[in-house]
Amino acid sequence: MVFLGGLPAPAAAEAAEVTLMKLERSGDGVYLTAAVQFELPTLVEEVLDKGIAVYFVAEAELYRERWYWTDARVAQVARYMRLAYQPLTRRWRLNVSPVPITNAGFGATLNQNFDTLSDALDAVKRVGRMRMGDVSDIGEDAVHPVQFRFRLDTSQLPRPFQIGLAGQADWNIAVERSAKLSVGKSP
């Protein structure tokens, strides 16, 4: 297992940073766990308080190194999160899905309710055990290059909000981290 801590954030995403990235082998699968740290801008918090949902996306790609060509992507996974305030119950609802959440329906999602926004954001910031694939597909290599991305997905906001977002730093929550991680056995 490899932990990455205290990594500097790239210049484009000064407000967010990846504080943990870990690959682990459990049974026949390989899982990625990551943690992101960011402060929710006041403007985004105001939109949430009005009952408008905000969407986050966590994506990861795992590669196999090749000396003769570019690295081969052997696994790709994404996790889509929808955070919304429910004014009638005064609770926060987080929907988590492996496929994009659309207005046509939530499909197969995991739903969690929280009493406070900070509790809900803690759940958004922890990306736990994203299944990258089978050990047989990924291979027994000791070290794999991994690219992890986390962002606020403004394309899923209602159209009136999308029009005025161009150039507003308050809506730019994004971080990307690349690292070579070893696959460790989980206990």
Results as ranks from 00 to 15, higher is better:
residue 115 D to K: 15
residue 132 M to G: 00
residue 35 A to D: 08
residue 16 A to S: 12
residue 109 T to A: 09
residue 110 L to S: 15
residue 68 Y to G: 04
residue 179 A to Y: 06
residue 15 A to E: 14
residue 120 A to P: 01
residue 179 A to L: 07
residue 156 Q to H: 14
residue 151 R to C: 05
residue 145 P to N: 03
residue 15 A to Y: 12
residue 7 L to D: 08
residue 116 T to V: 11
residue 19 T to Q: 05
residue 174 A to Q: 13
residue 77 V to L: 05
residue 33 T to I: 06
residue 162 Q to E: 14
residue 29 G to Q: 10
residue 2 V to S: 08
residue 117 L to M: 10
residue 173 I to V: 12
residue 19 T to S: 13
residue 25 R to K: 15
residue 179 A to R: 03
residue 107 G to P: 06
residue 26 S to Q: 06
residue 146 V to E: 00
residue 148 F to E: 00
residue 186 S to G: 03
residue 164 G to P: 03
residue 122 D to R: 13
residue 35 A to N: 11
residue 169 A to E: 13
residue 128 G to M: 07
residue 83 L to W: 02
residue 105 G to T: 06
residue 103 N to C: 08
residue 144 H to C: 05
residue 85 Y to L: 04
residue 96 V to F: 03
residue 122 D to F: 08
residue 169 A to R: 09
residue 101 I to F: 07
residue 177 R to C: 10
residue 182 S to I: 03
residue 48 L to N: 08
residue 140 E to Q: 15
residue 52 I to K: 04
residue 17 E to G: 08
residue 164 G to Q: 09
residue 150 F to M: 08
residue 121 L to M: 12
residue 98 P to A: 12
residue 35 A to K: 11
residue 158 P to N: 02
residue 13 A to F: 11
residue 134 D to G: 12
residue 62 L to A: 08
residue 46 E to L: 15
residue 78 A to M: 07
residue 61 E to D: 08
residue 173 I to F: 04
residue 118 S to F: 14
residue 32 L to S: 01
residue 132 M to T: 01
residue 148 F to T: 02
residue 26 S to M: 07
residue 20 L to P: 00
residue 4 L to S: 03
residue 26 S to T: 06
residue 41 P to K: 06
residue 155 S to I: 10
residue 167 G to I: 12
residue 184 G to C: 03
residue 83 L to S: 01
residue 5 G to P: 06
residue 49 D to H: 13
residue 37 Q to N: 07
residue 88 L to H: 11
residue 184 G to I: 01
residue 95 N to D: 09
residue 64 R to Q: 14
residue 147 Q to C: 09
residue 120 A to Q: 01
residue 167 G to A: 10
residue 151 R to T: 06
residue 164 G to V: 14
residue 1 M to V: 00
residue 32 L to C: 05
residue 27 G to P: 09
residue 152 L to R: 00
residue 88 L to S: 13
residue 134 D to V: 11
residue 124 V to E: 02
residue 154 T to Q: 04
residue 166 A to N: 11
residue 175 V to K: 00
residue 58 A to Y: 03
residue 134 D to N: 13
residue 163 I to P: 01
residue 39 E to Y: 12
residue 12 A to P: 02
residue 99 V to K: 12
residue 51 G to M: 10
residue 169 A to C: 03
residue 47 V to K: 05
residue 166 A to M: 10
residue 13 A to D: 11
residue 2 V to K: 02
residue 66 R to S: 07
residue 28 D to E: 14
residue 165 L to Y: 05
residue 47 V to L: 14
residue 37 Q to F: 06
residue 42 T to R: 15
residue 4 L to G: 05
residue 89 T to F: 14
residue 145 P to T: 05
residue 20 L to N: 07
residue 127 V to W: 00
residue 121 L to W: 03
residue 131 R to D: 01
residue 111 N to Y: 07
residue 26 S to K: 02
residue 10 P to T: 06
residue 32 L to T: 02
residue 149 R to N: 15
residue 64 R to F: 04
residue 65 E to C: 08
residue 45 E to L: 11
residue 30 V to L: 05
residue 102 T to G: 12
